[in-house]
């Protein structure tokens, strides 16, 4: 089985549109994962049919029993996350700040603090024309998206052990959700655009992928917005021996298609043509893996 993630460092570079296109164009038997749990948008593009969802429990969180709390404030002093606030003459936990370390339970002289399971999101199982799709959603104000990514990948592996390709729409950034996404995958498609911001994000992302021994491929989206930066990016990729799968031109049809909920690859524009070519190149590379 091959696991491939589409990642970008900077958000808004066209990662999800490209993932959805790969999902439709790559011929392999596959399972899809939307690991951008903060903003799970792949499902908006693939129009899947939801089958069911499971509750997702993050780490236990602290709960203070108001009947036992004597109002001494030791827990507030001990909490490095600022997750305990005073209300009236008692203390209470601010759930969205609590990381679940349990230190407050150690210091409470009244045994009023306990660690309780908490539901922090959902895992959704759906089916789309391109294959089964797993995506997550977080309860407003919950964190723990790195764990949710881990669980999504785990569930996909358990439910679909025999598929050839796992295609993951990755989260932006280079933090905990991204690390959960790229741990143990074989290849990553890095989607960037010719802007100063995306360029600096890209180099941080490359450093990270390299340390996780992930084979990297590069796609430059909206490349004609700044040809000079595109050239710099391609030169850097060559120096680092990162295979450039292709470049996608700026094309207003992409926005129109997205707005109307139509796959970009069904349009006749130049961007669609480039994406078809990129998917073909990726497919050739995957056959070598």
């Amino acid at each position: 089985m091959i696991q491939v993630a589409v990642v970008s460092g900077k958000g808004g570079t066209g990662k999800t549109i490209l993932t959805a296109s790969f999902a439709c164009l790559l011929p392999q038997d596959k399972v899809l994962i939307d690991a951008d749990v903060d903003a799970a948008n792949l499902s908006l593009l693939l129009n899947p049919e939801d089958i069911h969802s499971d509750e997702f429990r993050g780490m236990d969180g602290a709960v203070i029993d108001a009947n036992l709390c004597s109002g001494c404030g030791l827990c507030q002093e001990a909490c490095v996350y600022g997750a305990i606030r005073k209300t009236g003459d008692r203390y209470e936990v601010v759930p969205y700040r609590c990381e679940g370390c349990g230190t407050c339970t150690l210091v409470c002289p009244e045994d009023a603090v306990s660690m309780q399971p908490r539901i922090t999101g959902k895992i959704h199982y759906a089916k789309s024309s391109a294959g089964p799709l797993l995506y997550g959603s977080l309860t407003p104000g919950s964190g723990n998206s790195g764990l949710l990514v881990h669980r999504l990948r785990q569930e996909a592996g358990l439910r679909h052990p025999d598929v050839f390709l796992t295609l993951i729409d990755g989260p932006p950034g280079i933090g905990c959700p991204l690390i959960s996404t790229i741990t143990g995958i074989q290849a990553a498609v890095l989607v960037t655009e010719p802007s100063k911001s995306a360029q600096s994000d890209l180099s941080r992302l490359i450093t990270l992928c390299r340390s996780f021994h992930v084979t990297m491929f590069l796609v430059v989206n909206r490349y004609d917005v700044n040809l000079d930066i595109t050239q710099e990016i391609v030169r850097m990729a060559d120096e680092m021996k990162i295979h450039v799968l292709g470049k996608i031109p700026y094309d207003i049809l992409v926005l129109h298609a997205t707005r109307n909920g139509i796959p970009v690859i069904q349009s006749e524009g130049p961007a669609s043509k480039a994406i078809h070519e990129i998917a073909k190149n990726l497919n050739d590379e995957l056959e070598k893996v």
Binding site: D38, A39, R97, L138, G143, N144, G175
Partner: peptide, 14 residues
């Protein structure tokens, strides 16, 4: 702010 709505966003906007 950082993108998304998880821990980093909450730390920024609280």
């Amino acid at each position: 702010a950082p993108p998304g709505t998880a821990c980093p966003f909450i730390e920024t906007v609280d």
